[in-house]
Structure formats: structure tokens, C-alpha cells
């Protein structure tokens, strides 16, 4: 009887969005009288940071700091349609809608600035700090604060824009299954190191090294949040979680956090995250959806590592001590 070590690898890809159902999201952007920008949506923030990312996307597109953007979302009396937050679609679909709306608003803003500065709008650029300047002559500039005031009180313009992102629905061909299920794919490769106690069947995940390719890390700290949390959930799925431990038997299902098991703060694997960025052709600033795929590769990587450690295959999830012990006994008997 001994503690045995093993490691395993898995590589995966994951689709962004749900083309097979139709996938629309809309956004509206308008400026306040003093040049702050309101983004109106009906998208839902589940905790992944939808509001923050939409603010950064709008700010980058208009050319203002993020703290000048306000997100008003998920009120159906004001927000235009969003299909919902699922299928790793939120940042990609809503982000594209916000970009389109913000571009339209930016164009009006530049036109008003052009009138104030008596130049062509195409000669103007934003400095990202709240000012609009003439290209090549930065001393000739106007603040976005003053542009918004002018638009509202002097020139009678609405600095606003409408955005829409729609991937047309793909219908699978009946006989061949030809279809376009997604527009872009995120990627990952995970190496897991485990220890397995061959007396108790208990598995300890010592370390996971996760490499994720996500198109573009729009906010690297928030990407890290999702990837670390997702990696934890993947390990949890691999070893602990189920509502029916003896599926298809319906008995013994957990009804609280004492019975439904997940790793606690004392059970964490050493987690390494490496991010690559290959911008997607149609993502907002190249972003893909990382939220779901980040919890997938740990599961097979852990399963393969368990085999590497003790030489038995557990092909049923979760990989519980009971399943490992039964497999070890069967192996010893044969």
C-alpha cells in the first residue's frame, strides 16, 4: 500500500456562442450632457464581470477612460434585447453590439467636435483621456465634456448609437450534419499531477498547469479570475460532484453543502495559468468566450493522471475513492 504519483494531459477546444439557436444581442449608447456615456443592455452579469467588460469595450471604442462609462443593464423596460448569458457568448456577442453602438456615437461626437474646431471630422482623434485632438496638431483640441455640452445645448445633436450583433442561425443538414455551430473557438491544454492513495482510493491533485488560448484578454485580471475559478470547478467535477452518486439510482443525492462535495480552501491544487491570445476574426478586439471551456480540460487530465498513478481506468465520473478501490480490486483479482 502506497501513495502513488501520476500525471496526465488533455487538450480541448470550445465554441463561442450558440449559432444553432440564433444568437442576437443589441446595445444602445448615449452621452450625458457632460460627456459621460451610458450603455444600455439587457445582458446579465452572473459574476463573470459583464458590466465591467462592457464598460471597457465602450470606453476603448469611444476613446474615453472606463470610469466615464455607466452600464445600465437587465431592465427590460429600457434595455434592448439580449439572448442571454450562456454559451460563452456574453462578452463576444454583447461586446460586438456595444462596439457598433459606440462607433456610431463616436462618429456623432467627432462631427460635433469638428464643427466646434472648424475642421473635418476625419482629421480628429481621441487621446483616450477625455479629449479630441486634431491629428498632427494636438494643441488644437476640445474636451469631450465641452463637445457633449455643445451637442446638447448648442448644436441639437444626439451623441448616441445603436448596436446589433447577430449570427444567423445555422440549421444542421439532416443526413450529413453539415452546420456552422460557432464562429470561433477557444483552446486549452492542461497537465495535472496527482497522488493516489491505493489503500483508500483518495486522490489529491497536487498541481494543474493550464494553458488557455482565449483570443484576447480584455481585462487580464478578470480573465485570471475566471480561469482560476474554472480550473477549480474542473477538478471538482473530476473527483467530487454529483447529485446522484449511484446514477442511475436516484438515492443518496446531496441536498446541502455538507453532502454535495466540492474542494474547500484547504483542498486546492497548485494552479498555474498561462494565457495565449490569437484574436478571433469576429470577436470584440479579438476576444473569444473563455468562461466555460476553462473548466473542461482538468477533468480528463486528472482521469489520465489517476491511470498513470495506479494503472486503472475510471471511465465514470466522478472519480470517487470507491470507484478507484473497486477498480484496483478488480485489477488485483484478474
Amino acid at each position: 500500500m502506497a501513495i502513488r504519483r501520476g500525471r496526465g494531459v488533455a487538450a480541448i477546444n470550445y465554441p463561442t456562442g450558440m449559432n444553432l439557436g440564433g444568437d442576437p444581442t443589441q446595445a444602445l449608447v448615449h452621452s450625458t450632457p457632460t460627456g459621460n456615456f451610458m450603455v444600455t443592455l439587457s445582458s446579465v452579469d452572473l459574476g463573470q464581470g459583464m458590466k465591467q467588460i462592457m464598460a471597457q469595450i465602450c470606453a476603448e471604442t469611444i476613446g474615453v477612460p472606463t470610469d466615464r462609462v455607466i452600464i445600465d443593464t437587465a431592465d427590460t423596460d429600457t434595455g434592448p434585447h439580449c439572448m442571454g448569458t450562456f454559451a460563452s457568448r456574453g462578452t463576444h456577442r454583447a461586446g460586438n453590439a456595444v462596439i457598433q453602438a459606440a462607433k456610431e456615437a463616436r462618429q456623432v461626437m467627432l462631427e460635433v467636435a469638428a464643427e466646434e474646431l472648424e475642421v473635418n471630422a476625419s482629421d480628429l482623434e481621441t487621446d483616450g483621456e477625455g479629449n479630441i485632438k486634431v491629428k498632427g496638431a494636438p494643441q488644437k483640441s476640445i474636451s469631450i465634456f465641452d463637445v457633449a455640452l455643445s451637442a446638447h445645448f448648442k448644436r441639437g445633436r444626439s451623441i448616441s448609437g445603436r448596436g446589433m450583433f447577430l449570427i444567423p442561425r445555422s440549421y444542421p443538414e439532416k443526413e450529413t450534419g453539415a452546420m456552422k455551430p460557432s464562429t470561433c473557438y477557444a483552446h486549452a491544454c492542461t497537465v495535472a499531477e496527482v497522488e493516489v492513495d491505493d489503500e483508500t482510493g483518495e486522490v489529491t491533485v497536487l498541481a494543474v498547469k493550464n494553458v488557455f488560448e482565449i483570443g484576447r484578454a480584455l481585462n487580464p485580471k478578470m480573465v485570471e479570475q475566471q480561469l482560476v475559478g474554472g480550473s477549480w470547478m474542473g477538478i471538482s467535477h473530476a473527483l467530487y460532484e454529483t447529485t446522484e452518486p449511484y446514477y442511475p439510482n436516484r438515492d443518496h443525492g446531496g441536498t446541502d453543502f455538507n453532502q454535495y462535495l466540492m474542494p474547500g480552501p484547504g483542498d486546492l491544487a497548485k494552479t498555474e495559468i498561462i494565457v495565449l491570445e490569437r484574436p478571433s476574426a469576429d470577436g470584440p478586439f479579438g476576444a473569444k468566450g473563455p468562461g466555460e471551456m476553462c473548466a473542461n480540460p482538468q477533468i480528463p487530465a486528472v482521469a489520465n493522471a489517476v491511470f498513470d498513478a495506479v494503472g486503472v481506468r475510471i471511465d465514470t465520473l466522478p472519480i470517487t475513492p470507491e470507484r478507484i478501490l473497486r477498480a484496483l480490486r478488480a485489477q488485483a483479482a484478474s
Binding site: 479570475q225 480550473s231 477549480w232 453543502f257 480552501p265 484547504g266 486546492l268 494552479t271
Partner: peptide, 20 residues
């Protein structure tokens, strides 16, 4: 000590490490 103190609190998003 931190792990012990947080062991009665469930988080489903973060994987705990940032909280620690």
C-alpha cells in the same frame, strides 16, 4: 489559519485562492 477560518464559507466562482 486563513484556510481554517474560511472553511465554513462556500464560494462557487473563485476557486478560493484569490480570497485566501
Amino acid at each position: 489559519d486563513v484556510v481554517e477560518a474560511l472553511s465554513g464559507n462556500i464560494c462557487r466562482c473563485t476557486g478560493y485562492e484569490p480570497i485566501i
